Amino acid sequence: MITGWLLVINIIAFVLFGIDKHKAIVHAWRIPERVLMASAAMGGALGALLGMKVFHHKTKHTKFTVGVPVLLVLWIIVLMRIRGLL
């Protein structure tokens, strides 16, 4: 069940970063930063990080360049605990 959730939320996070980058380019309504960070916090940190790299988006914002990798590490720790590896 958690694997399915993580797959879905990571895809959503990746897509959100892509959409927001496109909206930034065309000067359209943007996705709030709290939504982008929430998608990472809910388990989509890997998708968010990949979105940042692929779309070159939010790479100058410390909140994202530090926050998203920290969230990814926290999720890795959580998953290792769930799997009994920690």
Score class of each variant (00 low, 15 high):
Val73Trp: 07
Val8Cys: 09
Gly4Val: 11
Ala40Gly: 05
Lys60Tyr: 10
Arg81Thr: 15
Gly51Phe: 00
Ala28Asn: 14
Leu85Met: 15
Leu85Arg: 10
Ala48Phe: 02
Ala24Thr: 09
Arg83Ile: 11
Leu36Tyr: 04
Leu49Val: 06
Leu7Glu: 06
Ile25Asn: 12
Leu86Asp: 10
Ile19Ser: 06
Met37Gln: 09
Ile76Pro: 01
Val66Met: 13
Val78Asn: 10
Val15Asn: 05
Met52Arg: 04
Ala28Val: 08
Met80Lys: 12
Met80Ala: 15
Val73Lys: 06
Leu86Cys: 11
Pro32Lys: 09
Leu74Tyr: 07
Ser39Glu: 01
Pro32Met: 09
Asn10Leu: 03
Val35Trp: 12
Ser39Thr: 10
Gly44Gln: 01
Val54Tyr: 12
Gly44Arg: 01
Leu74Pro: 03
Ile77Ser: 07
Val68Glu: 02
Met1Lys: 13
Asn10Gln: 07
Phe55Gly: 04
Gly51Lys: 00
Leu71Lys: 00
His27Trp: 12
Val73Gly: 07
Leu6Tyr: 12
Ser39His: 01
Met52Tyr: 02
Ala38Glu: 06
Ala13Phe: 01
Arg30Trp: 08
Phe64Lys: 03
Val70Ser: 08
Met37Val: 06
Ile31Asn: 06
Val8Pro: 01
Arg83Leu: 15
Ala24Trp: 04
Thr3Gly: 14
Leu79Arg: 10
Ile25Glu: 14
Pro69Arg: 06
Leu16Phe: 10
Leu85His: 11
Gly51Asn: 04
His27Tyr: 14
Leu50Asn: 03
Gly67Glu: 04
Thr62Asn: 13
Trp5Gly: 03
Gly67Leu: 04
Leu86Pro: 06
Leu85Ile: 13
Leu74Ile: 15
